[in-house]
Amino acid sequence: MIHTLVVYVEDKPGVLNRVASLFRRRAFNIESLTVGHTEQPGVSRMTIVIDGTQTNVERVEQNLYKLVNVLRVDDVSSVPAVVRDLALVKVKANARTRPEILQLAHIFRARIVDASKTTLILEVTGDENKIEATLDLLRPFGIVEMVRTGVVAMVRGPGRIDSAEVASWSSAARKPAAEQEGDSGINHSV
């Protein structure tokens, strides 16, 4: 099974390196990893996709918690979540194939973001399956170049985490470590 982990980390120099180094050292396989800002200054958010058949996801979570800069890890695989990946696909196109590609783009709600005499660039957004399906259909035309951002994810509805919790992580509002111990049952740093 494919697991999607949402990982909140302190926005400090070298944090991405710490996470990447952990995956390398423990021989965990990453399918994709993205990182970006959150609504809270000082807190970044990673989305890490792991193939559960190759890597023990629980061990990944436990080891992530061992990193001092990792604030929280949520496996959102088994809860309703919006999962999005974005692909830019440069595909060969000529007068004959262009209408066909445009039609496919329409079906997948992909946007045409560039056109030349011989190529088109499509921007496709969606989950893993949608992007794979789009690529499968585009492949016969000849894919010249392709890039994907990697997955980002967010739990639907109010979710398990609220802005107050995220705000509490910012350096201004830190609680002493002792007070936080065991407050959610998932605090497993060592």
Partner: peptide, 10 residues
Amino acid sequence: PVRLPGYRPQ
């Protein structure tokens, strides 16, 4: 006490 939001030994 030291405050480290990501460090909470159990």
